[in-house]
Simulated scan of single mutants.
Amino acid sequence: MTTPQDVLITSLDVPSSRPVESGDLSLVLAGAELIDLLGDGSVTLDGELIVPGLARTPADRLLVDAASALVRRPPYESAQDWLWRRGEGLAAVYLAVMEEAGQVARRHRRILPGRPGPATATDTPARRRAAERWRSGDPVLTVLAGALGIQPGPAAAPPEISDDSVEAVLVTVGDAVVELDAVRQRRKIEQAAFDNIWRGG
């Protein structure tokens, strides 16, 4: 099990204070990948830059893809740039791979044949591990889920991140999600203004 998989399952199982947007989820999954790559020594952070470490082969197929996507020559990529580049469409990729593995199920809509409906996590060891990680108050999962509007119960202790590099990634993820939401809001305002002009004409 990987942190991105735990994040995706948590996003399906735990209610959010707002709808989980695929763009937000993609950014968070890219951040979760980076945290796992930090954890196994595949990368380190030099300030904001992602510096590849030892050439390791992660056990997970999607983390292998993530490791192969690293910029391995100077000037290295910043964590922020990684989120936007690696995160593009990443939620759909994870859903497809986890559906193929039987960890996620998608009911097909009757009204729109061929278009999948909402995804649900299936009863698998992966789901149980993700649920236990969430219940235990794992700080990394708590912060990543929080970026999606998923909050633990009021009695939960505030997450404490002991690793400075992991904390830096988590802050970057939160900033990126806020930035994406601002872009969405700006587009809505622009579209509303355009609609008003169109109707007025």
Rank of each mutant, 00 (worst) to 15 (best):
A182K: 09
I161C: 09
G114Q: 12
A155P: 00
S136K: 13
A121D: 00
A157C: 02
G102D: 01
Y94P: 04
W134H: 06
G174N: 10
R106D: 07
G174K: 09
D181L: 14
W84G: 01
V177R: 13
T122L: 12
V178Q: 09
L180Q: 15
G114P: 12
H108R: 05
R186T: 15
A121E: 02
R186L: 13
V173C: 09
S162T: 10
A145L: 07
L148K: 14
V178G: 04
L180C: 03
R107H: 02
T172Q: 09
G174H: 12
A126E: 14
E100K: 07
G153M: 02
P116L: 10
L144F: 08
V140A: 12
T124D: 00
A119T: 05
M98T: 02
V166K: 03
R109W: 07
K188E: 14
V171L: 08
A92R: 11
I150P: 07
S162R: 08
R86A: 00
R135W: 00
K188F: 14
V183I: 13
P152Q: 10
R86P: 01
R106H: 10
A156F: 10
P125Q: 02
R187A: 13
V177F: 14
L180S: 13
V178T: 12
P125F: 01
A155E: 14
G137R: 08
G114T: 06
V178I: 06
A91T: 12
I111L: 14
R128D: 03
L170K: 09
G137L: 10
V93Q: 13
V93Y: 11
K188M: 15
R133Y: 04
A126Y: 04
A147Y: 06
L141M: 00
E167A: 10
R86Q: 03
T172S: 03
P113S: 03
S136I: 00
I189R: 15
G146N: 06
A176M: 04
R86L: 01
T120N: 03
R110C: 01
W84Q: 14
Q151I: 10
F194D: 13
V169R: 05
P152W: 15
R106W: 08
A192F: 14
R107T: 13
E99V: 02
V93N: 03
L170M: 09
P125E: 05
G87F: 11
I150A: 12
M98E: 09
V166Q: 08
R115A: 11
V178W: 10
V183F: 07
M98K: 06
M98H: 07
A147D: 13
E99P: 00
R129P: 00
V143S: 05
R127W: 08
R128E: 07
P139Y: 08
D181V: 12
I111H: 06
A119R: 05
R128P: 00
V178C: 03
A92W: 06
L180Y: 11
G117H: 01
W82N: 02
A96Y: 02
E99R: 11
I161M: 11
E100Q: 13
P154M: 03
E190Q: 14
D195Q: 11
L148D: 09
A92M: 07
R109C: 10
R106T: 08
L148H: 11
D164P: 09
P118I: 07
I189H: 11
A121T: 05
Q151M: 09
R128A: 08
D195W: 06
V140L: 05
R135C: 05
